[in-house]
Amino acid sequence: MRLNESIVISAPPTLVWDYLAEPSNYLHFMSGITRWEVAGEQRTGLGARYRMLIRVGSAEVGGLIEIVEWDERRDMAWSSVLGVDQRGRWRLRELDDGRTRVELRFAYGVAGSGIPGWIAELVSAPQLGGHLRRSLRQLKRQVEHERMRADAAQRRAERNLA
């Protein structure tokens, strides 16, 4: 099953990227996530690994994932190492007016699980889709709030200098 959601954030890609690259932020903005921990020495970047869990139906599902693509301010993709099969991608594209279009792609399943697996994917899709939409809305809120704070701090600094 493949899910795809997107949103436009009133902030440049750099700000959005910086927020997404920090693993400690995921518990704050990702809906349904109950665990997002760094696994190993590498905290971020290509090859970084995380133990993540998301609540779906009666269980917390997830496993160990690894960042497999890291194109700064544009694309970040991950793939599962252990647990339920999953691939995810953050896709950031700058719009003409300085805003950023953020797309979240998420594909999941259990290889070899047959018809029950297919039904489980269909049944879980609405809940997971809701998690993705809420996550994007929360990401937008957080990043835009960060931007407002940064702008306010800059204005204060300018006033103090004047």
């Binding site: 779906v56 139906g57 009666s58 269980a59 917390e60 599902v61 339920v84 259990v110 290889a111 070899g112 699980s113 047959g114 029950p116 697996g117 039904i119 489980a120 994917e121 049944v123 879980s124």
Partner: peptide, 22 residues
């Protein structure tokens, strides 16, 4: 491997029939 492949069926039963929560 068997456990992993049968997890979706167990998930369906416990989610849809028993509305399970752990």
């Amino acid at each position: 491997d068997y456990i992993r492949e049968s997890l979706p069926l167990t998930w369906l039963l416990t989610t849809l029939w028993f509305r399970g929560e752990v």
